[in-house]
Computed example of a mutant assay.
Amino acid sequence: MKALQDLQLFVRIAAAGSLSAAARQLGLTPAAASAALKRLEAELQAPLFVRSTRSLRLTAEGEAFLSHCRQALQLLEEGREAITQGQGTVRGPLQISAPSDLGRQHLLGWLDAFQAEHPQLQLRLQLSDRLARLHREPVDVALRYGEPPDSSLVALPLAPDNRRVLCASPTYLAHAGTPRHPGELAQHNCLTFLLADELYDRWRFWQDGRELAVTVQGDRSSDDGEAVRRWALAHRGIAYKSALDVADDLRAGRLVALCPGWQTEPAPLVLVCASRRQLSLAVRRLRDDLLQRCGALSAGLPAALPG
């Protein structure tokens, strides 16, 4: 088992680019992690990383060994999964990446309930709107809005009909006026989102089959979706958010959906993994659970919601 842990550590270091970060992920001290890496390199009789004071990078030998190491760990996981599936037991670690706003608002509670049903499961949750690199990072599955840019990934729908909602608080609208047409957004403070350092400031709408793209402006933007929603709740401007993210706010009247009669951008929520071999019993059970919960959340949206 110590050899298996050394392999797991090596893969984590390669993904994180940091020995101390990988050690934290596995609950090891930096000294123990360093000793494990030296032990593995001694056994292989080859250096796996080039070390500097600030970072680590793989050597040529490390690059070659990494792919084999991942395959070996995957095969061992499949063997363990074959045993647990025969027993019908969900167990072991499950590493999930999810958007910040959906994660903090809903997923934390949903995962609490899911883990209560499967007490032998160990959850590791990464909340970030940055797109996880599933082929390189230690992530089993990711929840993401929109179709994955990499067609080699496996994407399972959780909320295929989810759309964006143009919304603002009643207090903001009382002060700045209520836009009835997307073209009126030029007169409003719009709260924009950054993804991979790209500003998402071109909002699209449809009516009678015709598309209208509006370039918006505002005094603040963030790469964190939760920050954008909080600004809208604090009466700072108009947001263009996933309906799942603002479902509770719309239902409670904290936010108001704008521009009825205009269809908004699709924002399907999908569960993504690197390959079908990663569709373990835990992942399939989680997908079934989230599919049901997203459906219930969507069903609670106001009937007059645009789109």
Rank of each mutant, 00 (worst) to 15 (best):
V216T: 07
R164N: 13
S151N: 07
A303H: 06
E78W: 14
L123I: 06
S221Q: 07
G103M: 02
E77A: 07
L173Q: 00
G92F: 03
L153A: 12
L108K: 15
Q8H: 07
R39L: 10
D161K: 15
G261T: 04
A32R: 10
P30D: 08
Q120I: 03
S55A: 15
V139P: 06
A304F: 01
A113P: 03
H181S: 03
D245Y: 05
R133F: 05
T59L: 10
R39H: 13
H181Q: 07
L19P: 03
R251K: 10
C294M: 14
A36Y: 04
V90F: 01
A304G: 01
Q8I: 00
Q105V: 02
T84L: 13
Q263M: 06
Q87P: 07
Q71L: 09
E81L: 12
E226D: 09
G103K: 04
S242C: 07
F10E: 00
N189R: 14
E63D: 13
L195Y: 09
T264K: 00
G146V: 07
A32V: 01
L111G: 08
S67R: 15
D161L: 15
R164Q: 11
A35K: 05
P170T: 08
L156H: 02
E43K: 00
R54H: 12
A196M: 09
A239M: 04
R287L: 01
G253F: 01
A16W: 02
F49C: 06
A234E: 11
G295F: 11
P268W: 02
V165P: 11
R285A: 01
P306C: 00
A243I: 01
Q85H: 11
L108V: 15
C273F: 00
D201I: 13
L111N: 06
L244S: 04
L244P: 02
S20R: 07
L297P: 12
L131D: 08
V154S: 10
R251N: 13
L28E: 06
Q87H: 02
S20N: 12
S128A: 10
L125D: 11
R104E: 12
A299H: 02
S128I: 00
E63P: 11
E81S: 15
A46K: 15
Q263K: 09
D6T: 02
A243F: 03
Q217Y: 08
A243N: 14
F205Q: 02
L199S: 10
A299N: 12
L173R: 01
V165A: 13
A33S: 12
E137P: 15
G92C: 06
Q8E: 13
R276P: 10
V246S: 00
F10G: 01
A116M: 04
R220Y: 09
A234W: 06
L290W: 05
P119I: 03
S67C: 05
F49R: 08
L7Y: 00
A46S: 14
L56Y: 14
L194Q: 07
R91H: 05
G218Q: 08
A257N: 14
T29I: 07
I238Q: 08
R163P: 04
L58T: 10
L286V: 09
H181V: 05
L121C: 08
T215C: 07
P170R: 11
Q105F: 10
L94T: 12
V246C: 15
D245E: 15
S67I: 13
S128G: 00
A247Q: 08
A32D: 01
D201R: 13
R293T: 04
